[in-house]
Design a binder for these strands. Structure first.
Lengths: 217, 217
DNA sequence: TAATCAAGTTTGTGATCACAAAATTTGGTT
DNA sequence: AACCAAATTTTGTGATCACAAACTTGATTA
């Protein structure tokens, strides 16, 4: 069932490249992209780019406009609240499911990821912070061993990633404090409720931060 | 912002055609499909089919296997429970959000849809029943005016659609009774709690029915 | 100077081509 | 009759082509 040959298809590597760009804010909303332009910047023909764009459009990470141009969807207050709402429903659920599969080793891994994230935060390294934050959450979520919920949450992260970056670009990362440590402490105590609450708080805090600054954009 | 020209692209019509086939059980799990075969049966070139397949793969409706063949994913007990779980989290939420936007006219529409669904059920018209059931739920869900949650739920329906059909093929539709009427009655009384419970019951009943018969497949 | 419109350019779309990998058939051997 | 290797066909992939629609530019007019 697994991919034996570890050489990825051009299609797959194109997808991963574009997905990362979106997730960590290298492609910002508003600007329109051309298929040929993306293809050239990735050194491939337009064909795999087109398929990748269709795929990312299905995940709501990209938008095919009426004039057939492709872009990152614009954020509205309404859509922002919808994403926040969906995240608050699904992510604490996923975290709770993951809890029983998180052993001491994983907790140490999480603490390590968090340290790196903190370092990036202090240095003002935006991409490092965003990657660390992503790793922290998805290291947990993957352990829920629930691919159906996981793919729904992945779609949500693809949808708000670009805006997170946009906000950090304007405000810097100073005002963020770190809820991850609260979460790892709850894990060490095997306190399921406290862990779920920490994930919710972390998410609330991030979304409030972004939401409060949306008017600046 | 809207599509002015109402002639769909080949890509879009291919997507809709294939999506319907999956959703209402014309494509059953197990069998492997070829792009060229699908293209010929739809009277188009392989190009739009490839893009459509990528899109539906992103929505988890299709599966690209290691040998690069495309198929409907196999159902396992685990995946079945994951879908059931996700539906139970998201759909009652969507129904509750929709409630305030459901007026008398919509209630009558829902009652009408339900009547048609019942007729199909009595006649043993599987596709009619499945379409009616879909229409009933999504007429409600669309009124929640929440496209983020809606697209998540659409993905879930695409994932279990083929199995619903598979089960009905084996068991017939006799043993299904109709929870929709309970829901519309709750709507007429503007009883939010009762409505939410009815949606949950309907969903539970359907999923239990399918789950209980999975061993037959 | 600002608005308009016609040429020229760029772009998305759908079909086709070339090729290697996978499936299928074939034909010979045990 | 059962098996396996070679030959043949089918298939997915990525690149390219043809074309119409959208965008850009620059000259012309009010």
């Amino acid at each position: 069932m697994e991919q034996i040959n570890n050489t990825l298809t051009v299609n797959e590597s194109t997808y991963r490249a574009l997905r990362e760009k979106i997730l960590f804010g290298e492609m910002l909303p508003g600007r329109a992209f051309t298929l040929r332009g993306l293809a050239e910047s990735l050194g491939v023909s337009p064909t795999p780019v087109r398929e990748t764009v269709r795929r990312l459009t299905a995940e709501r990470a990209l938008n095919l406009k009426d004039n057939r141009r492709v872009s990152i969807p614009e954020m509205t207050e309404k859509r922002f609240q919808e994403i926040r709402h969906a995240r608050l429903i699904l992510e604490p659920e996923l975290a709770t499911l993951a809890m029983i599969n998180i052993d001491k080793k994983t907790i140490n891994l999480l603490i390590n990821i968090d340290k790196k994230t903190d370092t990036a935060l202090l240095k003002g390294d935006l991409e490092g912070y965003m990657r660390g934050n992503y790793d922290f959450h998805f290291t947990i979520y993957r352990l829920a061993n629930n691919s159906v919920l996981l793919s729904l949450v992945e779609s949500l992260w693809l949808q708000f990633g670009p805006y997170m970056r946009l906000v950090y670009n304007h405000l810097g990362t100073n005002s963020l404090d770190d809820q991850h440590r609260v979460a790892t402490r709850a894990l060490e105590n095997r306190d399921c409720i406290a862990f779920k609450i920490a994930i919710m708080e972390d998410l609330q805090q991030g979304m409030t931060f972004i939401g409060a600054s949306r008017t600046l954009l």
